[in-house]
C-alpha cells in the first residue's frame, strides 16, 4: 500500500487543528504548550492543549515537517478531544500506525510518532 495515500496527503494539505502562533491564546489556566523536535530530520511541532477536569478539551498545533509527521499530528488531534489524560497516556505507537493506516518503515517511524510524543510530554509537563 502507498505511503502517500489519499487521506495522508489530504491531512497534509488540509491539516486539522493547525493554527498560527501563539497557540491557544485566551484558553486560560488549563493551557499547556510543548515544542517537540525531530533533530535528525528537522521536523518541529508545537502543541497547545487545554486540560480541564483531567480531560483534554481543546488542542491546537503548528510546525513544519514531512507529510507523515503533519498527517499524523492532524489525525491524532481529531482523536484526542474529549479523552481523559489517562486514556491519552495509554495511547501507543500502534494507535498512530492504525490511524495512518499506511506502511511506516523504520526510517519514518520518528516522523509518525513526533505528534504523540509532543502531546504526551505536554501532559507530563502539566502533571508536574
Amino acid at each position: 500500500m502507498d505511503l502517500y495515500a489519499e487521506n495522508i496527503l489530504d491531512h497534509y494539505h488540509h491539516p486539522h487543528h493547525k493554527l498560527p502562533l501563539p497557540l491557544g491564546e485566551g484558553w486560560g489556566e488549563g493551557r499547556v504548550v510543548r515544542e517537540e523536535k525531530n533533530v535528525s530530520c528537522g521536523d518541529k511541532l508545537t502543541v497547545a492543549l487545554l486540560i480541564e477536569d483531567n480531560h483534554l478539551t481543546n488542542i491546537a498545533w503548528t510546525g513544519e515537517g514531512c507529510a507523515i509527521s503533519q498527517a499524523a499530528m492532524s489525525m491524532l488531534s481529531d482523536e484526542l478531544i474529549g479523552k481523559s489524560l489517562t486514556e491519552i497516556n495509554a495511547l501507543t505507537p500502534k494507535t498512530i500506525l492504525a490511524l495512518l493506516n499506511v506502511p511506516i518503515g523504520t526510517r519514518r517511524m520518528k516522523c509518525a510518532l513526533l505528534g504523540l510524543e509532543a502531546v504526551k510530554n505536554a501532559i507530563s509537563m502539566w502533571s508536574r
Binding site: L3, V39, I68, R108, C111
Partner: peptide, 28 residues
C-alpha cells in the same frame, strides 16, 4: 515539498538520495 517526502518518493522510483541536515545542523 519536505525533503523527506521527496526523497522517500524518489526512493520508490529507484533513486537513492539523502534527506535531512546531513549532520550539518549549524550550516542548515
Amino acid at each position: 515539498v519536505h525533503p523527506h517526502d521527496l526523497t522517500e518518493l524518489l526512493g520508490e522510483r529507484g533513486f537513492s538520495l539523502r534527506a535531512g541536515h546531513h549532520c550539518a545542523q549549524p550550516l542548515h
